[in-house]
Each structure stands twice: as structure tokens, then as C-alpha cells.
Design a protein around this nucleic acid. Structure first.
Lengths: 210, 210, 210, 210
DNA sequence: AATGAATGAGTATTCATTCAT
DNA sequence: CATGAATGAATACTCATTCAT
């Protein structure tokens, strides 16, 4: 008779279930996770789960939304409101976030989207609208402001914010697939940022090979 | 309908089936693909499919191997045998390959590995041994030779060949998830290569921000 | 058709299903019985059956155990505890049991073991440990006590308890195979017991052929 | 390229196939034996097998008939033609046959009939008509002649020839099911014959318990 | 609200049988 | 005659979902 894992407060139930589902999906993937396992993990009966989520797919969507929504707003607020220089922000709070991503729930969401996305276009739309495009836009805004202020120069790097994300995605994938073979993702991300910043800095001088 | 019921092409069958399976997996993912659909796509009965592949998993493995093996050897041969300068090789044949990857079957394989890899560790091992580690080693070799010859200088970029791959992986994922939202992956890849080469060139002068 | 869809009788279900399975196996043999038929016979869905029995084989084992366990203990208790003379016990309760066997569920179990035993060694082990060897030992014990008490004499018959069973097995097989051709199994069994007892009785005088 | 197991003489083919089928059925049972395995064992293609036997069931029937027909006639001839005394015949050639049965192909046929008989009533009919009833009748004839000649007396044993067979059947079953646990079937059979003959002999004196 | 017994459509796999070669 | 590639009906088992209690 183990203690129920979560307190019995009605209002929390849906979130508790979504949290349990997130853990289960993270561990075994969406398709391989049984609704019953999620219910057990949440300390709840299958029937009750179905009271809150009409289908397994609903549950999946809730998970994606939950995990993402909790984090993305904070991130974007940081991007928009910072009074640091762009470089200071990038090397500071932003680098911190990027380094955390490969080990964070976001990584799980990315994996789930890759695996299940094609079957859930509305979910992808949601993710795009609420996370990806907003994040990119906000970061692009940061770059643009830095260009306008003269901190950065306009160059290919200043118009492809995805380049900042690339090593993060790479690390996420690497971990998901090659868990056993370690990869120094911190170093990868830092090197990339160094490369990009050295290119972006307005005082940068291009040396052509002769 | 005058198709002959029997075609009796023993030699071709396994590949035809694997090809059909590849298409089916690419379209709907491994889990969501029914063996029967693969058989239909290949114009063959379920029974015959099982004559060549003992299980659905076997079929999956054959697909991965087929697609991969056909390409990787060519790539590595190019890396090892080139008599071009490193930069010329990277900007030439290698850039060509990298640009093709996001739209090639390799992209599908990558997606499949991300989605199904955790359930097929032996497949991941196979992919690691035969593709990833070999490719990385071969490319690292190219970088090392360029450093030794004085063409490149030793720097973080010369020791993280994954940085060359990162935008490719990013593009693969982007297409898989956000198919509808176009991404200029060619430009992404080229910019990254420019960044890396400008860092790697031996005559590069580092400008520190003051 | 006004049967309620749900009956919710958790406790009874496993036995009801095993009973239905027993009937189905008896009628058509293990291999030829479809799980779905068993479920139908039990008035239950396939899914529920699988809730209680993980595999068809499990179900088979449960059937064997159910049928057997219910009876063997009673039998052995009788053998061990009787205060009748050996002859009285054999001619009384034991003869009664033996005569019943060819028409009883035990006969079905025997048939099933003959047909399916080679594929289920663990089941055979179970049957041996819990039924055959226990039964033989208990009966051998009865014979030994009778020899020690002077009621029986030591002779080949007193050391081969299988001789008491032989006509029962013969009748079981006969019925299973030649159902249509009647056999007076009662008489067969009684004659055998007469033969054995006349040999076993201590006051027996052996007449050698000259 | 192992040598084909059987010489390529057309006329022998059906028998060779039936022999291979017998071995396969003996080893794994009818249901668990694949037609392909039989074909391989016979060194023949599936197609050719089907040229001689229209269905797997046909093959089964041929096996039963083959094995049985080869032996039963000899046995019955012995029963009918002997000029020995009944006791001499029983203790001599007949005991020899009975002792051989548990290890002979007949045992396999018995097992197969028990397992598959219910599904093949015509086969059972055939077996009854050509083996069981003929054998029983012939043996009953021997007993009757011995009674008429004064060698045996009329008693329950003289009218139940099955009693001679019972320990043989028991041994067959025992071996089939409890292969691992040895049983001295020779001794069982001999003891039974001793019991029966001592009862049958005309000079037998019945001792009643007081 | 809460439970978990009950349902049944869906799917991988097998194997007797056929038939083009 | 002989082959074995090809077929597809048959069947054990799973799991999302429902609903009587």
C-alpha cells in the first residue's frame, strides 16, 4: 500500500496526470506508453484519467503544452526585456539556457515531436505558433536591435538565429540516440557561440584568403 | 489487372521489399506502418515478405542498413582519398553532400533512429559503428591532416567535427517537424561552413573585443 | 439478449474461464481450440480472458491444475488416513474412484497431457510432482503397510502400483479414441483388482505349473 | 550439398515421404509438424510431396496405415496359425511383441491417434477395423480355443483380452508423457501376464479369503 | 467523483496449399 | 516430374476506451 504519489487536491489532478504522462513518454516514447501506466504513475485510475483527457492523444497534447508553456514565456521575457548588451545576454543567460536544454524536458518534447509530429499536425502548429516561431522572432529581434545599435554588424549570421540553436538540437539528438557515447555538448555550444559572436561583432575584420 | 500473379524474381525481392518499407516508414513512421501495407506497396503478399524478413524489426534493420551502407562508403572514400586542400574539399564535394542530406533518405533514417532507436539498441550500435563513428573519424582525420600540413590551425573548431554536421541535423529535424515552414537549409549550412573555415584557416587573426 | 453486458464478478471469472477452457479443450483438443472460442463459451471477451491468463499456455496450465488439484488431495488423504484393511480400502473407496476416472475430467487431462505434454515439459513436471508421483507413493505406502502388517505378501504385484492403474488408463484411452465402440471399463477394472488382490493376499498359495 | 537421403526411384517416393512424415510426427506431433519439414526430411520438394498426398491430413492417414499394416498382419497370422499351447504362445512370441511395443512405431501411432483421433473419425474407423478389432478378435479366438481345448478355464480374464494390453498401453503413455522418469515396462508386462495366466490355467484353484 | 472490470477492433506472424517455371 | 516462390486465411495477443458500480 504505497502512499499515493500526489496529494488529493482536485484542481491539481490534470497537471499531476500530465506530469506523470510526461515522465512515461520520456522513458518509453508515446506509442510504447500505455494509458494504464500513466494512470498508475499518477496514482489514479484509468477512468479518472479519461475524465480529464478524452483520448490518449489529448493527453499527449496536454503534455507538450504543459512542458513548453511553463518555460517559453520566461525565456522570451528575458530576450525582450534585457538591458544588457546583446553579447552579454548571449554569453550570460542565453548560454545558460542553451546549455541546459539537452538535459531538460524540452529535449524530450523535441524527441516526441520528431517521432509523433507527422501524425499530429495540429500539435506541430501549436508548437510552432507558441514556441518555435515566437522564440525565433524574439531572438531575431535581439539581433536586429544589436545591429541597429551598432553592436553587431549585418551579416549572414545575424539573419539566421537557427545557427545558435543548431548545436543544441544536435546535442539533443545525440543524447537521444547515442546515449552511451558521450558528447561534450557544453563545449559544442560554447564554441558555436564564440564563432557566431566573433562574426557578429561590428569591429570584426574579414580576412580573405589571398 | 493482367499483372501476372507470380513474378518469381528471387534476387530482386528483398531489395524491392526493403525499398517499399523505406517509403512506408518514411511516410508514417515505423510503429504506424503495417506489415501488410509494406507488402502491398511492394506488390507482394505478406507471406513472401516474411520469407525474407523474419520479423518487422528485421525489416526495419534491413532498411536502415540498406540505405546507409549504400552511401556512407562513398562519402568516406572521398574523405580519405582526396588530394585537394581541405578547404577545397570541404567547400566542394563535402558541401555538396551536406546540402543534399536534409532531403535525402539519410534524413529519414535519422528520424527513424530518433523515434525508434531507444527500442533497438543493436541497431543504434550498428549505426554508430558503421556510420557515425566512421564518418566522424574520417572527417577528424581530414582536419588533423590539414592542421599538420599547416593549412588549418589547431582550435576548438578543429576538434569538434560535429559542428559541421549541426546545421544539417538541424535542417533534417526542421523538415521532419515543420515541413510546412520552409527553412533555407542550404544557406544555413553554407554560413556554418564559412564560419568554421574562417576560424580554421591558419592565417586567421583573432580580434578580441577591447 | 437482455443479458447485462457487464457482470462484474471478479472472483468467479478465472474459474469460469478455466471451466470453459476445460470443456473446449476436452471437446477439440488444446491446439485446435481458439482462445476466442473459450472466451465465448465463458460468456466473456477475449480481453478479459487475457486479463486473467497471460497466454493460452497459461490457461492450459490453469486448467490442468484446477481439475487435478481438486481431486488428488482427496484421494491421497483417503490413502493415508484409512483405518480399513488394505483390501477393504481397495475394494471400497479406491475401486469407486478408479471406476469413475474414465468418465471424469481426469481422463481429459490425461489425454491433453499425452497430446501436448511433449511441448510443455514444465507442465509435465508439475503433473508428475503433484499428481503422479504423489499418488503412486501414497498407494505404494498403503501396499507397504499391508505387507508389514501381514495382510499382503511381498510379491511383484506389491511393488508395481501401476498395475492397479493400467486398466484405468487403458479405458481412458479407449474412450478417447474409440468412443463409439463401447468397452466395459468397470468390469475391466474390477477383474484387474481381483487378479491383483488374489495375488497379494498373504494366504495365497502359489501353484506352479508342473 | 549433402547427398539426398533416399535413392531416386519413383516407385519408392510415396513410402519414403510417409516414412519421413512418420519420423517427424513422432518427434513433434502432427499439429506441430510442418509439411515443409517432412519434405526436407524426405529430400523432396514441397510440390512433389503434394503430388502424392493431396493434403497434410492425407499424409497423416498414409502414415498411420503404413506403419500399422506392415505389422499387424504378421501378428495376427501368428495368433491364428500357432500350434503351440496358448500359454507357450503367450509367454513366447506374444510376450516378445508386447514388450517391444512401448518402444516401437506402434507407440507413436497410439499417441498420434489419442491426440488427433477426435478430428479424424474416418482414420479411427480404419484403425479400428484393420487393427484393433482384428487384433482383439484374433486374440479372443486364441483364448477361446484354449478354453475349448481345456487348457484354460472360462473366467473373467478369458473374456477380456484387453487386460493383456493394458500394461502395454500404460507403458506407452508413461513413456510419451514421463519420458524422464523411467518405468520398468518389461517387468510390468510380465507380471501382468503371470497374473493372467495363473488365473486362466485350468488347474487353477481359487482360494477365497475366509 | 472514482474505480477497474470488461470490451473488441487492430496487427504481427505462421503455414498449408498452389502454380509458373 | 520437380521445384520453391508466392499466396492469404487463420489466430494469439494488445491496448485504448467504456461504463456499471
Amino acid at each position: 500500500m504505497p502512499e499515493p504519489r500526489y496529494r488529493r487536491r482536485k484542481e491539481d489532478r490534470p497537471d499531476e496526470i500530465a506530469q506523470a504522462a510526461f515522465e512515461a513518454f520520456a522513458a518509453r516514447g508515446y506509442a510504447a506508453t500505455k494509458v494504464e501506466d500513466v494512470a498508475k504513475r499518477a496514482g489514479v485510475s484509468k477512468g479518472l484519467l479519461y475524465l480529464y483527457y478524452k483520448t490518449k492523444e489529448d493527453l499527449f497534447k496536454a503534455v507538450i503544452r504543459n512542458v513548453v508553456v511553463r518555460r517559453i514565456d520566461r525565456l522570451i521575457a528575458g530576450l525582450d526585456d534585457t538591458d544588457q548588451s546583446a553579447e552579454a545576454f548571449i554569453r550570460g543567460p542565453m548560454l545558460g539556457m542553451l546549455r541546459q536544454m539537452p538535459g531538460s524536458p524540452i529535449a524530450v518534447v523535441i524527441r516526441l515531436l520528431i517521432a509523433e509530429g507527422p501524425k499530429h499536425p495540429d500539435l506541430v502548429d501549436y508548437y510552432w505558433d507558441n514556441v518555435a516561431s515566437r522564440g525565433l522572432e524574439a531572438f531575431q529581434g535581439l539581433l536586429d536591435r544589436a545591429v541597429e545599435s551598432g553592436e553587431f554588424r549585418r551579416c549572414p549570421a545575424s539573419e539566421q538565429p537557427q545557427l545558435f540553436i543548431a548545436p543544441v538540437i544536435m546535442s539533443v539528438i545525440w543524447r537521444a540516440v547515442f546515449a552511451k557515447r558521450s558528447l561534450d555538448s557544453d563545449r559544442l555550444i560554447e564554441t558555436q557561440i564564440d564563432l557566431l559572436l566573433s562574426e557578429l561583432r561590428a569591429d570584426h575584420t574579414i580576412e580573405e584568403s589571398p
